[in-house]
Write a protein that binds this DNA or RNA. Structure first.
Lengths: 232, 232
DNA sequence: AGTTGAATTATGTTACAACATATGTCAACT
DNA sequence: AGTTGACATATGTTGTAACATAATTCAACT
């Protein structure tokens, strides 16, 4: 296991929001939702799913509960679960939540940053730039690591848990899209900019950069979704 | 059913974050956690709980999953669930999340507010002031209604769901505490202040007032927790 | 259109197997 | 004697299966 993933695994909060998932039923269903293998808005019948994934009903029930918690399915009492379509609205809503969390977490980090942190961030950023987006999975890992390094020290574990959750959601969705050249250079520029702000202890500046960063990420994502006309 | 609760029930999002719960196993366990009937940090054994609440294991499993989603219990794979102690840290963390959500939602509302909304808010506020905190449950209902009126129109259902969730958590906890005189007048003053800001279309002002409002609510809560020395 | 009734599905129950973790026991060792 | 580590046992979680009940769907029928 490489440095980035071990870092993540070590800090994963409850197994639920772990950023490196095992291949359990939950993530298989999630994948099928994201990749559109199950028609949007269709009913998720427990017995069908149990047959489909070759497990009994209990793991399915649990998985559906988790998926509800992450907004992928909508459960109505006595009426079962339906898929929440992964559309523009879903991405916008999720991005809006990240836009609430990340700038705040960044500001908190900026106010407590040490020289050692900055060195680590620069090391990760060097790796990111060296990779040149040639391996998207690896890039996603490194990018997550970059952000996590800033947030992990925040004392509020509930917020961190939320961040992991929504980060995972967006990551799962966007991992199916390419990254445009324009977005690539923006990502690098923004990461460097936030490091620069941290160096001069400019918390407000760092916060603003991350707001721009997340916002741009959301716009890019939605743009890519539109480009791939299908529902996903 | 009165106006306030029907309003809430109508807009409850998935049954999960409903602000008026039925008496299912989930809420009974939650109550027992909040009221301290189960010692903090103790293991929640599925068999024991099933026996305690007179149901079989499956509903318990689901309830624990839900409680995990709301931060009340911590589940470790193959090692079961433990209670998350309802302590100062828990309240602070939860309040911090509200502090991220509510000012943002308020600002969004302030930018789209109509004269009709303001009239409704004033009507609720009149009721609140007429009640004079003589019936805390009713007060909580009205207060929730006041805030919900501002937020319900926001298009991001995920954020609203989160708000309902954390609102419910804090409500469940604080409903066991009295409200100090000082806090009572602060609540009224702050509600009036936000209405005043809305009238002059001062979104930033409304946001600031709500930030102060939520922040004060959190401080009051923690203070009351300290006063009641017990773990809860 | 509205009603009725059968089929479907969710939800809850029970029993049990498989697996992981924690606990206790015991012998070898310092 | 006390400590350490391997082993066995106990406890509890997780997954499976078959079944009962209650609610919802849906189609046939006035």
């Amino acid at each position: 296991m490489n440095k980035a993933t071990s870092l993540l695994r070590r800090h994963s909060l409850q197994g639920e929001a772990s950023l490196v998932q095992p291949e359990n039923v939950y993530s298989r269903i999630r994948d099928d939702i994201i990749k559109g293998h199950i028609p949007a808005d269709s009913r998720l019948k427990i017995r069908d799913l149990a047959a489909r994934y070759g497990v009994s009903t209990n793991p399915i029930r649990e998985a559906l509960q988790q998926l509800r918690g992450e907004g992928f399915v909508i459960i109505t009492p006595n009426r079962g679960a339906r898929i929440r379509p992964i559309d523009e609205i879903f991405l916008r809503d999720t991005n809006e939540i990240e836009l609430l969390l990340e700038p705040y977490l960044t500001r908190c980090f900026a106010e407590a940053v040490t020289i050692n942190h900055i060195k680590q961030l620069e090391a990760i950023q060097d790796e990111i730039e060296a990779l040149k987006f040639l391996n998207l999975d690896r890039h996603y890992e490194l990018d997550t690591c970059f952000h996590w390094l800033m947030y992990e020290m925040h004392p509020n574990r509930q917020i961190l848990d939320m961040w992991c959750k929504y980060r995972g959601v967006l990551g799962a969705v966007t991992s199916r899209f390419p990254i445009t050249i324009g977005r690539q250079s923006a990502v690098i520029e923004e990461h460097r900019a936030v490091i620069a702000c941290l160096k001069i202890h400019d918390a407000a500046g760092a916060e603003a950069v991350i707001r721009r960063h997340v916002s741009g990420s959301g716009r890019h994502m939605i743009q890519q979704l539109r480009a791939a006309k299908l529902f996903l």
